[in-house]
């Protein structure tokens, strides 16, 4: 696409298509290609200052801006939901700066930007899932120094990672990491899957392209379709994807990741799907949970 074509036609738009200038997008795309070529490897990139704060998805936004084309249909989720404030804010940002179509439906989206979740519905070939990443370095809290962690990756020195898991089991009887659970990619790089709950880890091997952007830390990494992703564990303490027991109160799903909602001040609580699109789809198909019928009306 030429620069002239990529100007947003929408009235009042003063920015290049998807905000970033084409030079910057090319730089990000080069980083993305390298990241796809070396799955799990953190590629440094010259992250730009975006009009939203660092830590609020600037990495994801830059990656999305670099991959979006005018025909795309974008979905943005935060915590699995399309209507959380930051998801709304980012979606509006791209509507305004790229003039592209948006959707809440996982199946219809060509690009999905996410924070903290992988959609429940399996993604398909041709879709792109963009993750917002706060701390890309899985070894960061074991070794704070960048020069040292890069050496550890280069030399594949991951013993310390297992020491941490060993310590968890020795202290708690199990691996006490519930989200941002470290994975190893194709037997090589240890990678932080971003703070998704470990429930989502098995979905990391998927048909769609997965791109991870960390703006503040200036890193991009990626998983091509069907890349082998193994959650670190021990033979006798295997990785277990966990979630709250029970079924969604609205759609009755027993297999989706559940959010706990406190409903009163007497300890009453209920569980509902974290993936709002998945839940709505199930209810539209006639599935009903314990409190689903009435709630369905409320949401209509």
């Amino acid at each position: 696409m030429t620069e002239a074509e990529s100007r947003v036609e929408a009235p009042g738009a003063d920015y290049n298509f998807a905000y970033l200038d084409e030079q910057t997008k090319r730089m990000i795309r080069r980083a993305l290609l390298k990241a796809l070529a070396v799955p799990g490897y953190q590629v440094p990139f010259a992250s730009r200052e975006m009009p939203m704060p660092y830590g609020w998805g600037t990495g994801g936004v830059q990656v999305s801006a670099a991959v979006l084309v005018p025909g795309d249909r974008l979905k943005v989720i935060d915590q699995g939901a399309d209507d959380t404030t930051n998801a709304v804010s980012i979606r509006k940002f791209f509507q305004k700066t790229a003039g592209i179509a948006v959707t809440g439906h996982t199946g219809e989206a060509t690009v999905i930007q996410t924070r903290h979740r992988i959609p429940e519905a399996p993604l398909t070939e041709g879709q792109i899932l963009v993750y917002q990443v706060p701390i890309p370095e899985p070894l960061r809290f074991l070794e704070p120094r960048e020069t040292e962690t890069r050496r550890m990756h280069a030399l594949e020195e991951y013993g310390l990672m297992h020491v941490k898991l060993y310590e968890d089991i020795a202290r708690h009887g199990e691996i006490a990491t519930a989200y941002a659970y470290p994975v190893q990619i194709e037997g090589r790089y240890v990678m932080d899957p971003s703070p998704i709950p470990k429930f989502d880890n098995p979905k990391l091997r998927m048909a769609a392209i997965q791109l991870f952007g960390a703006g503040r830390e200036q890193r991009i990494y990626a998983l091509p379709p069907y890349t082998e992703v193994v959650s670190l564990d021990f033979e006798d303490h295997p990785f277990v994807p966990g979630k709250a027991e029970g079924a969604c109160a609205l759609c009755g799903s027993e297999t989706s990741y559940l959010d706990e909602v406190i409903v009163d001040d007497r300890g009453g609580r209920m569980f509902v799907c974290s993936d709002t699109d998945y839940c709505a789809g199930r209810r539209a198909a006639g599935h009903v949970g314990a409190e689903g019928a009435a709630a369905g009306e409320g949401r209509a």
Binding site: G159, H162, V163, Y166, A170, R171, F234, H237
Partner: peptide, 26 residues
């Protein structure tokens, strides 16, 4: 490693060379 248990200290070299059985390491 002063912040890692005695068992973890002894086990580190084993894990670094690929030991992945918690019971055996322990």
């Amino acid at each position: 490693r002063m912040t890692v248990s005695a068992g973890g200290n002894v086990g580190e070299r084993l894990m670094a060379v690929g030991a992945r059985n918690y019971g055996a390491i322990r």
